[in-house]
Design a binder for these strands. Structure first.
Length: 411
DNA sequence: TTCCGGGAGC
DNA sequence: GCTCCCGGAA
């Protein structure tokens, strides 16, 4: 661990008091999960909010947090809930593996409370909970238990790389170590919860990614990036490479009542554990060269599909088991899903960008007769696939649907 | 329209 | 070191 920092020892020593004074005066003190103004902090709400805030901004989290607290006021309520209900509450927030970890974590916590009578009280105890890593564990220790804890999340990293002009790539482990060491050096042992709150507020409201409000900043006088006018050069991060594009059909398979077939996705991978229309992989194009994706024209799309079907490797890689069953079943029975709109204009795919690729989803519709509906259902259930036949409205109301599915239903 | 940030799990 | 999703900023 480095013992030397680019800032002087007087700068290091006065960092916390300056930040805490600023926080008392200008920080946010009314967020529903904050515990710094009570002597009996509730670790459950801090844990829940921190997991939500791992990926999402405060304003987006607020309504989700309220709904979770209403439905699951205690960790025992969350632990006892059915997964589908948890998924429904999380739907739209993204990163669904975290919802699964949250649910699993609730069960772990409920068991620990049964055994010990209380939440975990140590950093290691919290890190053992699914979905809780070093920074979230530090946040819970400091803010949820009013014990000593250090956070080093994205906000902290932005503030610190600027203040100390740390120009290493923050995705590298060496830089991560440096930042954690600095965060530890700066965190006051007796007030780490308030300090954590203050750092997050600084990063969110003052030391923002673009246009930081340096004039209002309590750290401006010795901020090394500010001294060089290079605030927005930090944090340093390696350039990302261009994303590939993937084309799929979103199959709206209806029965004679107009109900649509929904599949629960496998726990691993995209939209894990959530419900989706059956997707039919069409093709995948490499990043840069493909550039602008061509519109999914009906003729060429059928052609692509034929090519893909004959290519086993791609086929296996891009279909879930359920989708493979459906794909083969439709093929075998000569059922063709048609574009939902006849006019070319409305048939453009829905674009949905994920971390590592752009996804172009073309809705296609087909209605099955009663015999076909039963046969397809039976085939899926034989493979232990969870399915539902539900109208669009019912699906939106009762299933956890990812945003992309909502977009398609709104079409 | 595109780009970007974000923490944990594997 | 790669995978997860979405919303807000550019």
């Amino acid at each position: 661990m480095p013992t030397h920092f680019s800032q002087s020892s007087s700068s290091l020593t006065t960092f916390a008091p300056r930040l805490l004074d600023w926080f008392a005066e200008n920080g946010r003190h009314d967020l529903p999960w904050q515990q710094h103004q009570t002597d009996t902090p509730n670790p459950y709400v801090v844990w829940l909010s921190e997991v939500m805030l791992q990926q999402t901004q405060v304003t987006t989290v607020l309504p989700y947090f309220a709904r979770f607290m209403e439905s699951f006021p205690s960790v025992q309520d969350l632990a006892a809930a059915e997964w589908d209900l948890v998924a429904e509450h999380w739907a739209g927030l993204g990163y669904y593996a975290r919802a699964r970890n949250l649910h699993k974590g609730a069960k772990q916590l409920a068991e620990i409370i049964d055994e010990t009578g209380d939440f975990p009280q140590t950093l290691a105890g919290w890190e053992a909970i699914s979905g809780v890593g070093p920074s979230t564990a530090g946040a819970i220790m400091a803010m949820g238990l009013h014990k000593y804890g250090v956070i080093c999340d994205g906000n902290v990293k932005r503030v610190l790389t600027r203040w100390a002009a740390i120009d290493g790539d923050i995705t590298k482990s060496a830089t991560t170590k440096t930042l954690w060491a600095l965060a530890e050096r700066l965190t006051p042992v007796d007030d780490s919860g308030r300090f954590a709150q203050a750092m997050m507020d600084m990063g969110a409201t003052l030391c923002t990614r673009s246009k930081p409000a340096c004039l209002l900043c309590p750290l401006q006088e010795d901020c090394l990036a500010h001294a060089q006018g290079r605030e927005t050069d930090y944090p340093v991060k390696a350039k990302k490479q261009p994303k590939p594009s993937k084309f799929s059909n979103a199959l709206i398979i209806k029965d004679t009542d107009g109900k649509i077939l929904w599949l629960q996705r496998p726990d691993n991978g995209i939209w894990g554990g959530l419900w989706s229309l059956p997707l039919q992989f069409v093709e995948k194009i490499a990043g840069k060269a493909s550039g602008k994706p061509a519109p999914n024209k009906p003729n060429t799309s059928a052609e692509r599909l034929r090519q893909v079907t004959s290519n086993e490797k791609v086929f296996d890689a891009e279909f879930t088991t359920a989708e493979q069953i459906i794909h083969e079943w439709l093929d075998k029975h000569n059922v063709i899903a048609a574009p939902i709109n006849q006019t070319l204009l409305d048939d453009a795919p829905i674009k949905h960008s994920l971390t590592h690729f752009h996804w172009y989803l073309t809705p296609r519709s087909v209605t099955l007769d009663n015999k076909q509906t039963t046969a397809l259902s039976t085939a899926l259930q034989a493979a232990e696939i969870n399915i539902h036949w539900l109208t669009a409205d019912d699906a939106r109301a009762t299933l956890g649907l990812p945003r992309a599915m909502v977009k398609i239903l709104e079409r």
